[in-house]
Amino acid sequence: MDFLQLGSYTFSSHLILGTGKFSSATVMLEAVRASGAQLVTVALRRFNRDQPADDLFSPLRAVPGITLMPNTSGASTAAEAVRAANIARELSGSPFIKVEIHPNPQHLMPDPIETFEACRILAKEGFLVMPYIAADPVLAKRLEEVGCASVMPLGSAIGSGQGLATVEMLNIIIRESNIPVIVDAGLRSPSEAALAMEMGCGAVLVNSAVAVSDNPPAMAEAFAEAVSAGRKAFKAGLMSKSSLAIATSPLTAFLGAKV
């Protein structure tokens, strides 16, 4: 069996699903089940008595085999992210934390300096730290060195659907990393998820592509199949590229050949 290893946790699914932007909790839960995802992200929000349906804790807990990975969205500094992580762990009962520090809502690019500092502290405190980062090989290595469980470079901007715009940098990160590389953000289609897995990613994290599709459970299933296919292809070993044609059939002339 081919597992995704994160700290001492193992997952048979290589697809991580986000829970934002769904039209309802019911649709989101159907998509989670259809995806086969075992790791699911959630965000911390203030309780609002006028919107009790916002609370996803109990509905998600009712899905067997799910581990919650809260994010620190809303934090704009390392200190805020560390505080959010500690509050989230209290509620999730899970050591996983997705460190997400993006100070500018226009592009949502992660702050590398604050992210690094938060990860350094949280890894020391025993969290399984999953940082959302730009596709920066140097930063990815530094995060591995301070004890992160994975690195999660963006394929393109959050929610943009621009796919694997960072493919060259992702290839370098994958080549250099000793921890799982998880493409997080920007994916639009299952084929992009398959490509990320063929490149050697340990997993992909998808949210918008599933949540805003016309049929989220069906799209979740499509992503699951693509991730599985891409992973199998990576494990099987892709053939090398050649600038020349290499025949697959014998080229011996026989039609019209003189005997």
């Binding site: 932007k21 992200t41 965000a43 609370d55 969205s73 500690n86 509050i87 209290e90 953000a185």
Partner: peptide, 29 residues
């Protein structure tokens, strides 16, 4: 700024001016 764990909540009395945050898990990526 202090997390109040479930087993401490019934004993933790609120005082005038306390700042209380109640947080839930909502949808997020």
């Amino acid at each position: 700024d202090e997390i109040i764990r479930p087993d401490k909540r019934s004993a933790h009395r609120l005082l005038e001016g306390d700042r209380v945050e109640i947080l839930i898990f909502a949808g997020g990526g």
